[in-house]
Amino acid sequence: MATVTEPGHSCGTSVLVRRVVGGDERAWRDLVDRNGGVVWAAARAYSATRADAEDVWQATWLSLAENLHRIRDAEALPGWLVTTARRESLRLARARRRESPAGLDGLLVETADNGGDPESAALRSVLAARLARAFSQLSGRCQRLLRVMAVAPEASYEQISRALGVPRGSIGPKKQRCLRTLRQRMLALGGVEEPEVAL
């Protein structure tokens, strides 16, 4: 997914929105490509299952399609998307009475059953398992923050703030604290050396 924070893209978003409102389907696909990473990260961070996250993802884009002509400031679009995804994820989680774990343990189990391709083999590596286990031991807040920052490294602090519903000024310190805790968990689980098999 391309960045949504580079100056060129920021300008491009306004143009894209105008083209989409004018019925340009290609421009719509570009909007999805540019913002999809952080929308998925927000939906997944607050959804119990991938199926729930997919429903939220789709509802978010459907809502955008019908509200796009109401968005006066195109620069606000990425924030609108992640806020919508987060709110709908939380509402769905409450409606279905599920917690919203963002951990990786279950995913690694699923992936381990997918056969012997190189990526699956890599995921079964010691480091991947250790990283996943350390991550799953973090608080829910840390898991959500690191997931969004890891999956959408191009996201601005403003977007992350909206995606997680936390003050923008707190993101940097929280990120450092969460990473420090992750390192400690990794150490406790057996070390933080470089992976023998690249992820």
């Binding site: 991947a128 996943a132 690191l146 490294p153 390192r183």
Partner: peptide, 17 residues
């Protein structure tokens, strides 16, 4: 590095379908 590894792990294990 840590965020990069996590990102690759998430993108591999849990990508946008």
């Amino acid at each position: 590095t840590e965020l990069g590894l996590l990102g690759r792990l998430f993108r591999t294990a849990d990508p946008t379908p």
